[in-house]
Write a protein that binds this DNA or RNA. Structure first.
Length: 323
DNA sequence: TTCCAGGGAC
DNA sequence: GTCCCCGGAA
């Protein structure tokens, strides 16, 4: 067991040594955009830029600005028992079906040639947030039937038509707009293919860290980071797997969770951890009233029965009126 | 009726 | 950090 820890530390040290800490490029079109080769921390912000020199009628334009900054990875010991916990969750997942198992994005365009398949994965991913997998899948099918799993065709389709086609997916109007714009960028800057780096994916509106990592994994088979969604975020905290930088406090955002997890979780677990925890979160480790009683790791989980089936203690006030 | 999810805009 | 987008689930 000591060997495990040693191995882990060696691994981390390795990362530390190869850390180049260099700026390697500036992406055109986006002002003041710098990134480093070693992705480690991603922040996304928007910036106001004058739309054009002299059009008083047009408002300022917003550019999405991404900065991937490097941080020195420190030696972080893996959580006690993490292997047993992970193993336990894997066993739980083997014995039951979870919605995530009847997948979505992974299967998108699986019959298509590589480039077309990648595009289908991107579009599928962009549509999938807050949307059941079956609904996303159906929308992808509908696009395919209409010859619209193709950036060129999408660019030539008007937004309302596109929105109508994908309609049952969540936020379809907004997504139609983002998908059209992403298609244009794929054509203009990537020869009709999808971006193959995290940074370029993040530059697409409608693609945030969660989806960007998912696309890198699925479309390019090149896992750059952990795809952290609400389930991974919640469960990692319940397990005591993640902490805010330099503290022992829980993380408060999925991005903090991602960085904290990546510090110690072996890389070959990065891709499978998402479907694993998502399914676990859908069936057992639910946001509200987790089913600790029937959870196979309730003897080793630090949060077992801690927030059990008591009535929702949340008393966060919503905006009750106007001021 | 309220809550919730990724991401954008502010 | 807060609201908004849609619609389904609690």
């Amino acid at each position: 067991m000591n060997s495990v820890k040693t191995k882990r530390l060696n691994r981390v040290l390795e990362v530390k040594e190869e850390h180049p800490k260099k700026r390697v490029g500036i992406v055109p079109d986006i002002e003041d955009f710098r990134y480093v080769k070693t992705e480690a921390q991603t922040s996304v912000s928007t910036k106001r830029v004058p739309a054009s020199s002299n059009k008083s009628s047009s408002p300022v334009r917003l550019e999405k600005k991404i900065r991937v900054s490097s941080v020195v990875k420190v030696e972080v010991a893996a959580p006690e028992n993490w292997e047993a916990v992970l193993e336990g969750i894997k066993n739980i997942r083997l014995s039951g079906e979870a919605p995530v198992d009847t997948k979505g994005c992974e299967k998108a365009g699986s019959l298509l040639p590589p480039k077309e398949r990648r595009f289908a994965v991107l579009i599928s991913t962009m549509m999938s947030s807050q949307t059941k997998d079956e609904v996303t899948h159906a929308a992808v099918e509908r696009l395919g039937e209409n010859g619209l799993l193709d950036p060129d065709a999408i660019v030539r389709t008007d937004e309302a038509t596109l929105a109508n086609l994908i309609k049952p997916v969540g936020f379809y109007q907004r997504k139609a707009q983002f998908i059209k714009e992403a298609s244009r960028i794929c054509l203009e800057r990537f020869g009709g293919d999808i971006p193959d780096t995290l940074t370029d994916l993040l530059a697409l509106k409608g693609v945030g860290p969660k989806m960007a990592h998912l696309v890198m994994s699925i479309a390019w088979k090149n896992t750059q980071g952990i795809c952290v969604d609400t389930h991974v975020h919640r469960i990692s905290n319940r397990l005591g797997w993640v902490f805010r930088e330099g503290t022992k406090q829980k993380t408060t955002t999925p991005e903090q969770t991602r960085m904290s997890l990546e510090k110690w979780l072996p890389k070959d677990e990065w891709e499978p951890i998402n479907p694993l925890l998502v399914g676990f979160g859908q069936t057992i480790c639910t946001p509200l009233r987790p089913k600790c009683g029937s959870c196979g790791i309730n003897t080793i989980c630090p949060s077992a029965f801690k927030e059990a089936s008591s009535p929702n203690p949340k008393q966060k006030k919503r905006g009750l009126g106007r001021s």
